[in-house]
């Protein structure tokens, strides 16, 4: 039984990593700009499609027809030659193999630009509007973004292979001195967890230990006073929106081998991530991270058949049940601050 529970715990950490990364970005935007951004899930999706685009570019092929061989319907058989491998040989093959992690390099500038354009172009016009209007406009944006992706890449999920070296499962049980093959876990999921820890740590360190981060934190606490000191806080907040988009995008890129990207993935994650933010406490970065992992772990345990035998469908509703209980006991969420989203 220990092995089963431990594996579900690992699963929870893995799921929680994705929830925490998206919730982190959501909270950054809400904490700095005061905007409830329902298009944040779409940024996660854009990141995932950066990986798709990057791989499609790397796997562009030349197609020639072989008139000697015919298909069952009588057409000449196509001979496909990948361009990158033809040009760069083994290096090209390595590039294709590592397309997912390498596409982080594409996603960072792309997501930064998307974030800044989105904030300057649309979001800034809604700063002083009620939250309901912000939700409406960002939700509309999310639908538009989803439809753009559907029009360009089609409605079907597009699988993204992980590097061959990371395809297997790690024998964690053997690492811990147990029997081999008792606790095995996919390597890429461990990579994703470590990646999430790295990104979360970097964002927190950036806010904590840099002058830029200090100004942003000061702005989050008292925007007017920081502005009165002659600091252009709006520009810094715009950059924070861009950084939040980059965090969501990177999370999306690295999630693609676990979940083939589709135009619906933004919405799928958005709802859960909002619950995470609410449970963690609106505007609280540590709250969002803690709630992300907590709900990921609970969702994972709720999927066990031993539990489902007593509570059918519990895996589908567990996070909402937890949200209800948390909000009844702690109306501001786990680490919510007084005055945030309160009349």
């Amino acid at each position: 039984m220990f092995e089963v529970l431990f594996l579900q715990f690992l699963n929870g950490l893995d799921k929680g990593s994705a929830y925490a990364l998206i919730a982190l970005g959501l909270t950054l935007v809400f904490g700095t700009l005061g905007v409830v951004n329902f298009a944040h899930g779409a940024l996660f999706m854009f990141g995932a499609f950066c990986a798709v685009l990057f791989r499609q570019l790397l796997t562009l092929e030349t197609v020639t027809l072989d008139p000697e061989k015919l298909s069952p319907w009588g057409a000449p058989v196509e001979i496909r030659q990948p361009l990158v491998q033809a040009w760069f040989g083994d290096v090209g093959a390595v590039l294709v193999n590592y397309s997912v992690p390498l596409s982080l390099l594409l996603s960072i500038p792309v997501m930064l630009i998307i974030g800044i354009v989105m904030e300057r172009g649309i979001i800034k016009h809604f700063y002083k509007r009620p939250h309901a209007e912000q939700i409406l406009v960002t939700f509309g944006l999310a639908i538009v973004f989803g439809e753009i992706i559907k029009a360009v890449f089609g409605p079907n999920p597009i699988p993204q292979p992980m590097p061959t070296e990371l395809r297997g499962a790690a024998d964690i049980g053997a690492w811990l001195g147990m029997q081999p093959n008792v606790i095995t876990y996919p390597l890429w999921r461990l990579v994703y967890f470590l990646f999430a820890l790295g990104v979360i740590g970097s964002v927190l360190a950036f806010l904590q230990f840099t002058t830029f981060g200090m100004v942003v934190r000061a702005g989050m606490a008292d925007r007017e006073t920081v502005g009165a000191l002659g600091i252009n806080i709006d520009r810094r907040f715009t950059i924070m929106f861009g950084i939040a988009a980059v965090v969501a995008g990177m999370a999306g890129v690295m999630y693609t081998p676990l979940l083939p990207p589709s135009y619906t993935m933004g919405m799928d994650f958005l709802v859960i991530s909002f619950v995470v933010v609410v449970v963690g406490g609106m505007g609280s970065l540590p709250g969002a991270i803690a709630a992300g992992f907590l709900l990921g772990i609970l969702q994972s345990f709720a999927s066990m058949h031993q539990l489902k035998a007593f509570f059918p469908g519990i895996d589908q509703v567990i996070i909402y049940l937890v949200a209800v209980v948390v909000l009844l006991v702690l109306p501001r969420g786990l680490m919510g601050r007084r005055g945030v989203m309160e009349a």
Binding site: V4, Q8, G12, M265, S300, S303, D315
Partner: peptide
């Protein structure tokens, strides 16, 4: 659930 996408939490109990 239909369309679950991530089946990891259902797969881990299979192992043991």
């Amino acid at each position: 659930p239909l369309g679950a996408a991530d089946f990891s939490q259902y797969l881990t109990p299979v192992l043991n």
